[in-house]
Design a protein around this nucleic acid. Structure first.
Lengths: 200, 200
DNA sequence: TTCCGGTCCGAACGAACGTTCGGACGGACC
DNA sequence: GGTCCGTCCGAACGTTCGTTCGGACCGGAA
């Protein structure tokens, strides 16, 4: 049954690319049929619905990010800031290496329903907890852990709206810059605080 | 013709709310008909197409953000960091006050085509230039201006995925935390740099 | 040779979509 | 009173959608 898995993977890859380009809702099963080489009806031998196709892409991608992050942390040593940097660096480089899937994961996260939605939420919580534990290890944070976590995810998920991995800025460099920006902002002593401006 | 404008505004408000809840593609003109009180055909007396409806929401919203940011900057004094903080604070509080429109602007930015798309791109460029000029005034940045700009927009646009303005964290406080996180990270002297970790 | 289960597809189904058409209604002006 | 114009709508149009159905093809077991 190896060929079966290979063809399913092919279908998922093509679908992720098309969803990333045109959006999930705007892509029809007929589009995927043309892009994948399968007939329209043939697709339904691999997935039971359009929604399950989206679910498979997102779930597989999320699983990869989480296990990848765990592996990166396992090699990151003990120092809290170094571990945080490793987490960020892994997320950014993984994002750059799997742009289509990560864009679909980031941008089409509200399309699922029922059991599939719940499963994806669980994975999201799992990944967020990983970050929260890292943030807890860093002392003297000058802003709240919750806001910091969302701000960081914003920084590193927004990537899909502008970044081109083959451009002048290589993924490792991008990860470094993001790490430095966030870590410096989050861990700096309170004395080095920017002037507080209240909106008029 | 005042009543006409009021009814158009009503339509745009309802559409923005529905698009924010269910997404642009997933919302049908029949949905908007039910939600707005207009008949299906009646909607076409105010907009010429579904795409123009999206365009009007996005263009009006963008115009408001830009002029609002200009006003905030006019009152922000001379110090570069204070001006940057004012820009961020304005963006965040405006976002919180116009969640539906800003979510539609952030999340459905790839749907338009042709002239409308070009017009929106122009507005986006205009707003980004505003930020770039502010970043240029801040000395000794430890990461590139371009990356910093995208990271900041990521932080403050991702808000729509998690923030509830009526929750425990008021918009002004959120703006403050975002300002502090970004400004500290962007303007900190290079000596206070987080440990550089290269991915294995 | 026969049969069978996995693989795949052309053709069709009913539903929902964005948009249009012809006309109804009502106040303003002659 | 008659006419016109802005406002609005019920009903329909043609298209596209996700999904299904019945059967074709084929390698291997019996």
């Amino acid at each position: 049954m190896l060929a079966y898995d290979k063809r399913l993977q092919h279908l998922l890859t093509v679908a992720a690319r098309t969803y990333a380009e045109r959006g999930y809702q705007a892509t029809s099963m007929r589009d995927l049929s043309k892009a994948s080489g399968f007939s329209l009806a043939g697709i339904y031998h691999y997935v039971s619905s359009k929604l399950e196709l989206l679910y498979l892409i997102q779930d597989r991608c999320f699983t990869q990010v989480i296990t990848g992050a765990r592996e990166a942390l396992a090699q990151a040593g003990e120092e809290p800031e170094a571990r945080l940097a490793a987490f960020i660096q892994h997320h950014v480089t993984f994002f750059a290496a799997h742009m289509d899937e990560m864009k679909v994961l980031s941008h089409e996260s509200d399309e699922l329903e029922g059991t599939m939605r719940a499963q994806l939420r669980r994975r999201k919580r799992e990944y967020a907890n990983l970050l929260h534990e890292l943030l807890d290890q860093v002392p003297e944070a000058q802003i709240s852990r919750q806001t910091a976590a969302w701000a960081l995810f914003g920084m590193i998920n927004w990537i899909y709206t502008w970044y081109h991995p083959t451009g002048p800025l290589p993924p490792e460099k991008l990860g470094e810059e993001m790490s430095r920006l966030f870590l410096t902002g989050y861990t700096a002593p309170v004395s080095h605080v920017a002037p507080r401006i209240t909106a008029p």
